[in-house]
Design a binder for these strands. Structure first.
Lengths: 326, 326
DNA sequence: GGTGCTCCTGCACGTATGTTCATTGACAGT
DNA sequence: ACTGTCAATGAACATACGTGCAGGAGCACC
């Protein structure tokens, strides 16, 4: 018996594709598919897993526009951002909350990002969680650009940031543009000088043209400190100066006050993050928040008009709406 | 215990939506969802069924553009239409074939049709099969327009056509425009006269502006006769004239020859179907074929440039490619 | 307040699906 | 040719899922 089985390269993909067709479009059982494909049921199960994991099958949830959740509608009315409330039980732990919001975002992100686009991503525990779940989606001529440096006194941060960026990059088949600078410079002058370097200014230009920005929120003075504040990026003096300036949070290591203002916050002069003016020029600015400890920060970010699309867990959404009018 | 259960109208939808989120975006098990929603696992199963059936959950299969099936690519190269090959085992019966192709089309149709659009549909066994499976998709300000009359010597055909059209209409929440005329007039003059009536010309205008046309193929001289030829629409003389004229098939009761031409086919003067010129002005023209008995007809339709998107079963696709160059 | 009706629920069962594990065959290095 | 590595397979098992069924809540009609 002469085997005609030339296991061509993307042969598995081809099979996965027809299996997916048969399963999702024709409602065949895996057993039946196994029979049609002359293989075992287990293999079909695996093929389908593969199909889902590699983005061949795309499952979307489309709210019948007349019925967005009450919370999402109210947030739109009051803050003028498109909210996506992620259902999470109130008794969930903070890590659960983060993980589940991140998973949801990762699944939906593909709807915002496509070929020929540039995605700016920050780093931090939120971004890290998201990056660990992004689902594959093939794109062409697209790139991921790092929004702010991750170096600090102990490390260049390259490994950490590159890990996050890399996951986005491979998921989308996109080119990754790293930003190998410290999160904060010691001397603003150094930043100015470096910003004039062609290698850096090239990257800044890419940032300036990005189509989608994805970021979490930092909240320096909340119980649960974010990655930035735990990682040795700031010293006591820095911290004090933030407190004095009335800072409530940051986006990509750029700080802001409760009213959304940033003027006169000294640390921003030394930050590697994008000026908010740049961010505001980005058509889609996706902010991911989980856990109500970041509420003050979120209020500031909303005031500062940094957000067009907001992902948050149910509890935080409720808390946001219960807080005083703004 | 005071029940706060005010079973609001679209409360079920709301629940279905969160259940879908939890299931498809967060990969929770139905058990876990049941727990979070304070209900039983079975109810969650039903909620999810509901979510899928009512189009809240949308499952798409996206071929990673670099790997369309070999057949689809070859068809594109040779005939310049986007083919969608539906995998069907070669030993499947003709009804199976039709049913499975129809199911696939029904599932994918939502990707072609949206709000503010007009969909023209023909009738016949293929259309009937598709209509029985169309999945819900909410649209606004859209309409379904009947392409050709269905009346014959025995019936107005209204019930039959309206059944088909109606299913599309309810699936998309679209307004249905029926076409209450016979499939074929006895006297061309009657047709001319009627075509000048405002009620009819209004409908013809709608046809002229449709965004998507959906139709099967008729093949008068194949073993398996289509609905048109079995239903008493044509008499012996008509049949003979078609044969004499070298007709190989029809689209919406408008006939054509193997080379795609229609000139001088007398019956067309009496047909209620849209002139091919009208059809060709329609941006998307989706043709559904199952079973290789319709191959000659398909060839003609391709020559006549009636098709932009072609759905067919695997066997027919192979047969199409094996036939002589065209 | 009954009666019949429909719709919804949770249980229990059988089936469909995911996953572990031992086996196999292909391949590269020696 | 031997051997270790690796990916892929199907059998067997454990789990998750769909659905028929009986009971109960709501509601209209007498």
């Amino acid at each position: 018996m002469s085997h005609a089985d030339d296991a061509s390269p993307s042969d598995r993909t081809r099979d996965a594709l027809t299996a997916a067709h048969l399963y999702y479009m024709q409602d065949l059982t895996m057993d039946a598919i196994a029979h049609e494909l002359h293989t075992s049921r287990s293999s079909v199960s695996r093929l389908l897993s593969h199909a889902r994991a590699s983005g061949l099958v795309d499952i979307q949830i489309r709210s019948p526009l007349d019925a967005p959740s009450r919370l999402e509608k109210e947030i739109l009315d009051r803050f003028h951002v498109t909210a996506h409330v992620v259902p999470v039980p109130d008794n969930a732990s903070d890590v659960d909350r983060l993980e589940r919001v991140a998973l949801s975002v990762a699944r939906i992100l593909g709807q915002y990002f496509d070929s020929n686009m540039t995605l700016g991503v920050a780093w931090g525990s939120t971004m890290n969680a998201i990056s660990r779940h992004v689902t594959l989606k093939a794109t062409h001529n697209s790139q991921i650009v790092q929004l702010n440096g991750a170096g600090n006194m102990r490390t260049t941060g390259l490994a950490y940031a590159s890990e996050i960026l890399g996951r986005f990059g491979t998921a989308f088949g996109a080119h990754v543009q790293q930003f190998p600078v410290p999160a904060f410079f010691d001397d603003p002058a150094t930043k100015q000088a470096l910003w004039r370097e062609r290698s850096v200014s090239r990257l800044l230009e890419i940032q300036g043209r990005m189509n989608v920005a994805l970021f979490g929120l930092g909240s320096p003075f909340s119980e649960v400190t974010s990655h930035v504040y735990a990682g040795g990026y700031l010293d006591e003096a820095d911290y004090a100066s933030l407190s004095d300036a009335g800072v409530v949070g940051d986006v990509a290591t750029v700080f802001f006050r409760a009213d959304g203002s940033t003027d006169g916050i000294a640390l921003n002069e030394r930050s590697s993050g994008p000026e908010f003016a740049v961010l505001r020029r980005t058509p889609r600015r996706i902010c991911v928040v989980s856990g109500s400890s970041k509420l003050p920060s979120l209020h500031g970010a909303l005031r500062a008009d940094l957000i067009t699309d907001l992902f948050l867990d149910e509890g935080t959404a409720r808390a946001l709406l219960e807080s005083p009018l703004s």
